[in-house]
Every structure is written in structure tokens, then in C-alpha cells.
Design a protein around this nucleic acid. Structure first.
Length: 862
RNA sequence: GCCUCCGUGGCGGAAUUGGUAUACGCGUACGGUUUAGGACCGUAUUCCGUAAGGAUUAGAGGUUCAAGUCCUCUCGGAGGCACCA
């Protein structure tokens, strides 16, 4: 603990500048940062330009303003997008960089239950804290575009979009088994159930039959997969989305139950029907109630069903059962396999899940691992119909002999399929069933329709009324928004607290017949708000539309973590829907987030996740008063790659503070480059850095951008100190005494270098660079509105390069050569052979081969 | 169980298409400066060795003139999916 209690010790910062010379102007970050933050706000320099050729939308996933304030980990993504925004503004783009609040949500309501403080009040207090923390961090948000999902101006349009979905047949109310969290007393979407538990409170989720609102996201399943090809996201995230959607092509086959007129339909992706030896129904299967079982089996089957009826039949996120041995029971029934006219037994087992496919599976144990395990457990026959690439055609008795779909193989023991390739044979089998009218090719999905009803208060009211004559009707546009009532008690009673509001149901009439009706009392999942907020940012004050068509643009750079499946999938669904409705311009495309990056977590100094529990939470308020926002920003970006986890280090922060101190002194000390040689070296370094920083920023490689800036600063400092040494000898003057920045005296040549350096650093350390720009370099306000430096490719080329001499691949010497010479093999060979280190190794040897890599390496093989 | 990504000094981490491994920063040591300092400046710092030299990117093999980078296996870590038919 003591190592990290920097809060307690009075920091000695920021008096570094004053220390080295009594005359130098001090850099007091608290004064400078406050000064420029006020000026930037007053001059509105971050206002989104109304017009502009090169529009660029840079967005953070907006935060939920929780009671705990922001910590330095939250800031990482915000600093990244801030650097991008500042960089693109300097590059001449019209940047839209807004911020807002995902203000509805359960924690505020739970807090209200505990304390009696209204969610509206606590949420807005939290927003104030969050906004202040962002402002003192020097963020360049256009605050004119700020939005708050809990404001009626915003949720009016959430409701309006709901109604559009309803009118398009994509919002519907249906009674179905749903995930119910007994602690939060609300239903949850499948996406919000993690390992059978509530995502928020970790309570075991139970199943309940309830009448709920759904959005038909399944209608977009295919497009949600195919659209991923067009966008720049991490492959990992794309894969997770594809996985969640879970598209599978296969066939539904109907089997006649022997001695009955009933049929059982199974879904399979791999109909290896000559290897089918049984059929399995899930315990929930409807037919089990309809079929007449032989007496001898009735009792055991009923008992099995009772014991193994899944507690969460609808959810595919059921509790972990996969490691258990499979159980099951024979029903006494048989079905006929038409392809070989064999009868196979029908079993019941809970390894077959009701919600997947048809809830019934054909058992082909030779070629499916689950079927194999089941067959082994109950001594059911195992027939081999595929030979894999190992050529083994013997009886299958071991797990690793099972050749599954997707592996290489050829058919055997399968009549007309014999000799066919695995995949080809499956297609032939499907053709056979389709021809006979016994089956039909189908596509199944893992994704379910999105359940959006919540029995909670602090959310957007669902704008629907129920009329006994006309059914569910949307509230007319002119009556929107349906305002959230304030006269409620928050204690949950298994229904929405709004149900107990006296004002909410007052004078509500059916828009069709005018009869007195009741409003829907449930609210929407907060993911509905976040599914379209980024569109509202394009036109946040529009009173007539959710956002006008000409203003909506997709997000170019979207930064945020988590929510990989939920938010990103839901938001893409909304965008595609509104796009299809013609409410988004066709030219901008049907994907909302063109590039997506997730910042890695910042861990505590103890390498544990920051949390109150470990006492390792560090907030911007712990750092900024002592080190300044610039130090915090540069440190967070320098820590490591943007997208990986990394631990906080207070000595690392101090290192950055030292670096910025060096930068300040570099500018505030008279600096000149004298000889031509140093001059070109410095210029070459500068132009290399301009190129590298630009490229790195665009690729989110902020850590290496900063290290190259450090190298440039080191080069400049060295060049400066060489000059000072000369003066020391000649003029016998001490460096410290000769400088003062009161009247900057900077040569033309130098100011070009320094002006470029200041601009390169401006996105990272905006306050100090503004101070340097205006007060030291005497340039007009603001550095953040000045153009990004451009580089000259000719100046990047170094005139001296190092060529390495290898013997058998081992480095034996290196030579500094002029660039031109380093490209000539004969010249380099001659020079290399004359190097004493090389001759020593080559003595008495014959060179078998020489490999020459122009300008880099010459390798002699002996 | 399956899939994906990752493993580089005391630490965080750099390294175009295979072409000087350890950039940059932290820490440490010594020296300087200062009334003093946890500030600032300088030098050193992968390991072994006085040196010449040798070893080194989790471990073991392989391809290559040349491997942190490509291939195979093993170990370790992170994440995702998890009876998906």
C-alpha cells in the first residue's frame, strides 16, 4: 500500500522548471490548464463545423454515469479518441466528437430503493461529476451536442423508433418463457444471462412464462453476419458476433413413428442416415405428451422427464451440464429410417436442448461425439459410414475414431453414397429426402428475438396502449413522449413500479375507437437507448425528427470495451432497420460503426482489476492536481498498446512528468542548431517523426507515437547541449545563466523545428502545447486550429546508413556507409572484406556464397 | 472439451515483406549540480566473462545464407463458446 499512497505525500511537482534555472519561467500546470480550458470553451474551438468536405465522426461508447466516479481506466478510451479528434481537426477534417450519457438503468433505481433518492436526481449528480472529470482532462468534446437518454427530448424519439418497429411488424408482444431475475425482479434478454446467472447481480436466473415485448432481430440475422465483411473491426469481435448469431445450414427430416400416425421432426447439419441408430427427444418435447407410450415405459419416461425438465428451457445459456455423463431413457417407441427401412429406438435425454433446432436429434454415433457418448452409455449400436483420412474402416469403439462433420472423409456402408466425399454425400442425402418430400433444407440460428420489456421504473416507457377492441395500439406521434411518471414508489413487486402510478393511466384513450384504455407499464431495456444514441449526436436538437437524413453519418472511429455481443449487435440492427425505412441516406451504407477498437483495461498498481474491494482505484482527481492532465494523458497513452491490459505505475507517471518538463525546458531555453551537419540530422529526425506520429495515431499506436516524440526531443536536446558545450569552452559561460524565455530569441530555422514539434505533441498534451504555441513561440491562438505538419520524403532519407557484415549469419562487424555506396554490392563487398574484424574471421576460409541485402546486410557463407 | 489470441531484460514494452533483438520509458548504480531535495544534468545497465568471445525472445525440434517473426510438438497465460444436433 505504502508504495502507492502518493495521495498523502505532498507532491513536489510541478516545480521542475524553476529548479534548473532561477530565471526560467515556471510551468504551473494547474494555472495553465485552467487558463486554456476556459479559453477553449469561450472560443468554442471544438464546435463541430457545420459544413466540410472531409467529415469524420469519432465516438466513445457513452458512459453510464454510475455513483462511483470515473477512474483512470475509463479515461483511456476517451484520451485515445480525443487524440484522434485533435489530429483529424489539424488534418483539416470536420470532426464530430460528442459526449453524452446513458442515463437510464438499474443501478440508479436500486440506489433509489435503498436511499429514497430519486434516480433522476442521483443520475444528474453523477453526470455532473463525470462531465467535470472529462473537462479537467482536457477533452475536446463539442458539448453543444451533449445528450441524456433519460430526458424526454431524447426518449421521445426512442419511443418513436419503437413505434416504427411496431408498424413494420418488427416489435411484437408475446407470451413465452423468459429469463427472470428474482433479485432484480425483472426479465432479462438472453444476452444478459451469463452462465445461467443475471449479468448484473449474479443471481441464478429462472424461467417464467410472461407476456413481453420483443424486437424481431432474427429477421436481420443474415445481414448482421454479411455486413461484418465491410467493416474494420478486430476479427475476434467479428467472430464473437458470428458465433452469437450462430447460423447453421442443415435439413429438417420427418420420421414416422412406428404404429402411430405421428411424425417426429429432427434438425441436422450432417444427415449420415445410414449410420443412424437411434433418435433422441428433449424432455420438453411436445410430442411426449401426445404420443402413446407402451405401458412398460410410461412410468420411467415420466419420471425422467420430471427430473430432467430443464429449469431454463428457453435460454441457450443454460447452466453447465456438458461435463456430466449423459443420461436418458428409452420410450419403447421406434421410428422408421426411410433411407434403409430400418427401425430405430426413440429415447429421451436432456443432452438434447428444446430451444435448439426442433428439439429432437437423430443419433448417428459413429460421426458425432455427443451421439457417440450417448450410444456408449446405453450400449446402442454404432455404425461406421465414413472413413477418415487415416483410412481406418474398423468398428468405432473409441472417441478418437469418430469422424465428425467438417473432417475429411468418404462414405462407406451407405448404398448409393459409397465412395462419395463426406460433404458431397451429405448434400446427396438431403436431395434424397427433399425429393421424397420427407425433409426440407433449413437454416437455424442461435440468436433469438430481442426481449426488451423490463418491469422496472428507470427506463423509457413503452409507448403502447391496449384496447380490448383494437388490441395493442401505438400512442399517436402527437402525444409523444409518453412521460415517465414521478409519483411512484420504487420498491419492486414483480411488476413495473409504474403500474402503481396514479397519474400514468389518467385519461388514456384508444387512438382507434376513443375508448378508455390502459398504457403499457413496462419500460424498455436500456440497450434500446444505446442502439441509436450515436445517430442523435448527428442532430441532437432536432425537434421534428430523431435526426435528419442529411445529418446522419456512420461513426468512423468507435472506441469502447465490452458489450461486444449486445450493444454492437443491437445498434447494427437499429441502423439497418432505419436504413431500410429510408431514414438514413443510402450513400452512407448500412453499417453504423466503420472502425471499432476496444481499449484494454488499466489494472491497479497491484496488477488486479481496479475495484473498491482491493483499494486500488485511481481516479483522474488523484492525478491531475499533482501532475496535470497532460501528464495523465501522455502517460495513459504511453503505458503500452492501446488494446491490451496494463498495470498502473506511479513511477511511470513521474517519468512522463519528467519528459514534459524536458519538453518545456527545450522550448523555454534558447535553442539553436549551428552547423549544417547537425542541421540535416535534426531535420531528418523531425521528418521521420512527423511521418511516424501521423501513421501511428491513425493506427491507434499511441505508445510508439510518444516514444518517437521522446526520441525527437532527445535529439533536439542533444543538438542543443552540443552547442552549449562549445560556448562553455569559448565563452566560459554557464548554460543556465544565458537563457531566459522572457523574450524568446529563436532563429528562423529552429522555430520551424520547434513549431512542428509543438504541433505534433498538441493532441497528446494540449494545454502545455497551447501555452508554448501562444506564449513561447508567439503564434496566434490556437495550436489546435493550426495545420498538422507535413513531412518531406526527401528529408527522411538518411545520408548515412549502417550496413551489417555477417559471417554464416552471425554479426561480425558493422560499417557506416553513405547511402549511395550501401546499395552497391561490389563496393560493400570490398569494404566489408577490408574490415579487420572481418578479415580475422575470413582468414584461410573460402566464401561459398555471398548474400547482399541492399543498404542493410552482407552475409558471407563459409 | 472445442476455438482464438498471446509468452521478449529487474518492470511496462519496441522491432515493414524473415535481415543489427532489447527502441522509448521505469527501476537500479555511480558521478555532477544544488543551501537542501524525492527535483535537475551526465554515464552505465539482457546474461556469463577482466577480455577475446559466448549465450539469449517460455521449452524442444524443423525450414532458411539468415527466425522474436514461418512450420510441428510441449508447457504456461488471457479471452470466447460450451451437450448447437
Amino acid at each position: 500500500m505504502d508504495k502507492y499512497n502518493h495521495k498523502k505525500t505532498e507532491a513536489k511537482w510541478p516545480d521542475s522548471a524553476k529548479a534548473s534555472t532561477g530565471k526560467q519561467k515556471e510551468y504551473d500546470h494547474s494555472v495553465v490548464e485552467a487558463k486554456w480550458q476556459a479559453k477553449w470553451a469561450k472560443e468554442q474551438i471544438y464546435k463541430t463545423p457545420g459544413t466540410g468536405e472531409k467529415k469524420r465522426y469519432v465516438l466513445d461508447m457513452f458512459p453510464y454515469p454510475s455513483g462511483a466516479s470515473m477512474h483512470v481506466g475509463h479515461l483511456e478510451g476517451y484520451v485515445g479518441t480525443d487524440i484522434l479528434s485533435r489530429y483529424f481537426r489539424m488534418k483539416g477534417h470536420s470532426v464530430l466528437h460528442p459526449m453524452g450519457w446513458d442515463a437510464f438503468g438499474l443501478p440508479a433505481e436500486n440506489y433509489a430503493i435503498k436511499t429514497g433518492i430519486h434516480p433522476d436526481k442521483s443520475t444528474h449528480e453523477n453526470i455532473k461529476t463525470f462531465r467535470r472529470q472529462l473537462e479537467i482532462s482536457g477533452m475536446s468534446y463539442d458539448w453543444d451536442k451533449e445528450i441524456d437518454t433519460s430526458s424526454p427530448e431524447f426518449y421521445k424519439w426512442t419511443q418513436w423508433i419503437f413505434i416504427q418497429l411496431f408498424k413494420a411488424g418488427l416489435a411484437y408482444k408475446k407470451k413465452s418463457p423468459v429469463n427472470w431475475c428474482p433479485k432484480d425482479e425483472t426479465v432479462l434478454a438472453n444476452e444478459q444471462v451469463v452462465e445461467g446467472k443475471c449479468e448484473r447481480c449474479d443471481t441464478e436466473v429462472i424461467q417464467k412464462d410472461m407476456d413481453q415485448w420483443f424486437f424481431k432481430i432474427t429477421a436481420y440475422a443474415d445481414r448482421l453476419i454479411s455486413g461484418l465483411e465491410k467493416i474494420d473491426w478486430e476479427d475476434e469481435v467479428k467472430r464473437q458476433q458470428i458465433n452469437w448469431i450462430g447460423r447453421k445450414e442443415g435439413i429438417n427430416i420427418r420420421y414416422k413413428v412406428v404404429g402411430s400416425d405421428k411424425e417426429i421432426e429432427v434438425f441436422t447439419t450432417a444427415p449420415v442416415n445410414f449410420g443412424m441408430t437411434f433418435l433422441v427427444l428433449s424432455p420438453e418435447h411436445k410430442l411426449l405428451k401426445e404420443l402413446k407410450l407402451p405401458k412398460a415405459y410410461q412410468e420411467s419416461v415420466a419420471k425422467y422427464i420430471k427430473e430432467h425438465l430443464s429449469s431454463s428451457s428457453n435460454s441457450t445459456n443454460v447452466a453447465n451440464k456438458s461435463n456430466k455423463t449423459k443420461t436418458g431413457v428409452f420410450t419403447g417407441l421406434y421410428v422408421a429410417n426411410p433411407i434403409n427401412n430400418k427401425e430405430v429406438p426413440v429415447w429421451v435425454s436432456d443432452f438434447v436442448v428444446a430451444g435448439v433446432g426442433t428439439g429432437a436429434v437423430q443419433g448417428c454415433p459413429g460421426h458425432d461425439l455427443n451421439d457417440f457418448e450417448f450410444a456408449q452409455e446405453y450400449k446402442l449400436p454404432i455404425v461406421r459410414v465414413i472413413v477418415g483420412k487415416d483410412g481406418d474402416a474398423s468398428e468405432i469403439t473409441k472417441k478418437d475414431q469418430v469422424i465428425e462433420h467438417g473432417m475429411e472423409g468418404r462414405f462407406i456402408n451407405s448404398d448409393f453414397l459409397n465412395g462419395l466425399d463426406f460433404e458431397e454425400g451429405l448434400q446427396k442425402t438431403m436431395d434424397w429426402f427433399e425429393d421424397k418430400g420427407l425433409g426440407k433444407r433449413t437454416v437455424t440460428y442461435h440468436i433469438r428475438d430481442w426481449l426488451i420489456s423490463r418491469q422496472r421504473y428507470w427506463g423509457c416507457p413503452i409507448p403502447m396502449v391496449y384496447c380490448e377492441d383494437d388490441g395493442w395500439q401505438p400512442v399517436p406521434d402527437t402525444d409523444l413522449p409518453v412521460k415517465l411518471p414521478s409519483d411512484v414508489d420504487f420498491l419492486p413487486h414483480g411488476e413495473s413500479p409504474i403500474a402503481r402510478s396514479e397519474t400514468f393511466q389518467k385519461d388514456v384513450v384508444c387512438p382507434i375507437c376513443g375508448k378508455q384504455v390502459k398504457r403499457e407499464v413496462d419500460t424498455m431495456d436500456t440497450y434500446v437507448d444505446s442502439s441509436w444514441y450515436f445517430m442523435r449526436f448527428c442532430d441532437p436538437k432536432n425537434k421534428n425528427e430523431f435526426a435528419s437524413k442529411e445529418n446522419i453519418i456512420p461513426v468512423d472511429d468507435y472506441v469502447g470495451g465490452g458489450h461486444v455481443v449486445q450493444h454492437l449487435l443491437f445498434a447494427r440492427f437499429f441502423w439497418k432497420f432505419l436504413f431500410d425505412q429510408g431514414l438514413i441516406d443510402k450513400s452512407v451504407g448500412d453499417e453504423p460503426f466503420l472502425k471499432l477498437r476496444a481499449p484494454g483495461w488499466i489494472l491497479g498498481p497491484d496488477s488486479r482489476k481496479m475495484s473498491k474491494r482491493w483499494g486500488n482505484v485511481i481516479t483522474p482527481d488523484d492525478i491531475i492536481p499533482k501532475f496535470g492532465a497532460d501528464t495523465l494523458r501522455v502517460y495513459e497513452m504511453f503505458m503500452g498498446p492501446f488494446d491490451v491490459m496494463k498495470p498502473w505505475s506511479i513511477t511511470g507517471v513521474e517519468g512522463i512528468a519528467r519528459f514534459l518538463g524536458r519538453v518545456w525546458r527545450l522550448f523555454s531555453t534558447e535553442y539553436k542548431v549551428h552547423s549544417t551537419e547537425e542541421n540535416t540530422e535534426v531535420l531528418s529526425k523531425l521528418h521521420q517523426t512527423i511521418k511516424k506520429v501521423g501513421e501511428d495515431v491513425e493506427n491507434y499506436k499511441f505508445n510508439t507515437a510518444i516514444s518517437s516524440l521522446m526520441e525527437l526531443v532527445n535529439t533536439l536536446t542533444e543538438a542543443g547541449s552540443q552547442k552549449s558545450e562549445i560556448r562553455n569552452e569559448v565563452g566560459k559561460t554557464k548554460i543556465e545563466n544565458q537563457t531566459s524565455i522572457q523574450t524568446p530569441n529563436i532563429s528562423h530555422q529552429t522555430s520551424e523545428v520547434l513549431s512542428a514539434l509543438a504541433r505534433l505533441m498538441a493532441p497528446f498534451a494540449p494545454h502545455m502545447m497551447e501555452e508554448i504555441w501562444v506564449e513561447v513561440l508567439g503564434m496566434p491562438f490556437s495550436i489546435h486550429a493550426s495545420p498538422w505538419p507535413s513531412y518531406d520524403p526527401k528529408l527522411i532519407v538518411q545520408n548515412e546508413v549502417t550496413v551489417v557484415v555477417q559471417i554464416n549469419g552471425k554479426v561480425r562487424a558493422s560499417m557506416k556507409l553513405e547511402s549511395e555506396i550501401s546499395k552497391q554490392e561490389s563496393e560493400v563487398t570490398k569494404l566489408a572484406k577490408s574490415d579487420p574484424n572481418v578479415t580475422k574471421w575470413l582468414e584461410g576460409q573460402t566464401i561459398k556464397k555471398t548474400i547482399f541485402i541492399s543498404g542493410k546486410v552482407i552475409n558471407f557463407v563459409i
